[in-house]
Nucleic acid binder design. Structure first.
Lengths: 220, 220
DNA sequence: TATCTATTCAATAATTTTGTTGAATAGTTA
DNA sequence: TAACTATTCAACAAAATTATTGAATAGATA
């Protein structure tokens, strides 16, 4: 029947997108590319895959039009095809956290390893920033900070945090943020800060979520 | 490494959701369940699958917590696990239409078969309804209409449209809507209406999209 | 032009997904 | 309780996905 052929085609085309997202490595790549462009080798390192394997997964994402490439010297940089891609990923991530208790459990179990970590959401942070009551730390790498960061955040890469920390007053609460809800840099930072006697929380979301919501960002 | 195991777990759990959505039949089922609950046999008929096959795909969706079941007499009714599921599907659908020219092409090619079909979006329809300038027809089945329909819409199942049509004045534009952008009932209705001398358009979205946006609905 | 190097490709085996078939099951109805 | 029926299950073969390996390629640099 004519209609059936049409539907098969439409849902078939759309399933190319969901198929492309239907793999843990590729979800991790999408999450990573939310930070900005990365080379194949960088992606491989961040995700613990071989370069050839990462390349093949990137081909799948590229064929589904979820990522696109630019060349920079010898390197090929992959980035998300548009902000809708990150939004769709965020919607799926939220779906997982809300309906699938297993996801929530894995995350909270892991975080317990750092002790009790309080978190604040983006809207809450905006209020605190307006009151000038907090110090905001970007605990990702300096390179990621330079690509773009939350307005008024200080760069404090997790490895350098203990030295930077000495310059911070203990009168204000410190908020740490990183790449997203599944990135643990902020948890590590909060654990260290609390150990040193600071009042500290993590931002639940990461920088890409903040930017996607249209909240103020700065580029160094 | 500890962190890698954590990430593997998190992305692995989330990929269960995207894997479950990574199949054309299962996407069609999700789209259909946006209308409300259906039995396994109904789902099989609507999607042109065998009952056993539909059942197996439904198990996959259930395991991913995307659908849930209730019993009604001898029948087991499947429905979406929550409105977030439809929203995520809508986000993916939009992603496909925006970034993947192939999806857009398949849809517009098919619609050309009915002649030039104009469509209006939900926001445009609201304006026209306020001005009382249009007649709004729900061309889905009477059963689906009774489950819920757009406020002020008349029920006009596509098979009965030609008889109902005689009672409609030609002074107003007629807007037809159905299940969603990939449902062709509204296109068929518009083609018929235009042939009979009416000014007619289709609503681009379907009833589930309208309801998900929080616009006014009525239940018979 | 020749060299170098990041990336892609091709081939392979292991694993997973898929649809069909017919039998089994659970829960309702009589 | 017995009969019925919608749904699920189990087993199978075909097809698709996946990670690994090492070779090939394209494009920049010297």
């Amino acid at each position: 029947m004519m209609k059936r052929a049409f539907k098969d085609k439409v849902y078939g085309e759309l399933s190319k997108i969901t198929k492309a997202m239907g793999n843990p490595h590729r979800l991790e790549i999408i999450d990573l590319l939310g930070q900005g462009p990365f080379s194949v080798e960088q992606i491989a390192n961040h995700t613990g895959m071989s370069v050839a394997n990462a390349s093949q997964h990137l081909q799948v994402l590229k064929n589904a039009k979820l990522v696109c490439i630019t060349r920079d010297g010898n390197f090929i940089l992959y980035s998300l095809a548009g902000e809708n891609v990150f939004n769709a990923w965020a919607a799926l991530r939220a779906l997982g956290i809300v309906y699938n208790a297993e996801v929530e459990k894995v995350v909270s179990d892991f975080r317990k390893g750092y002790g009790p970590i309080e978190s604040i959401d983006a809207e809450g942070l905006i209020v605190l920033l307006e009151k000038d009551k907090v110090i905001l730390l970007d605990v990702r790498s300096a390179e990621e900070y330079n690509r773009g960061h939350i307005h008024r955040a200080l760069s404090a890469p997790i490895e350098e945090l203990s030295s930077i920390l000495k310059t911070l007053p203990k009168s204000k609460t410190v908020i740490a943020y990183c790449r997203g809800p599944f990135c643990v840099f902020a948890d590590e930072a909060v654990a260290l800060l609390k150990k040193k006697g600071y009042k500290a929380q993590r931002l639940y979301e990461g920088f890409p979520d903040w930017a996607a919501k249209g909240y103020p960002v700065a580029i160094k």
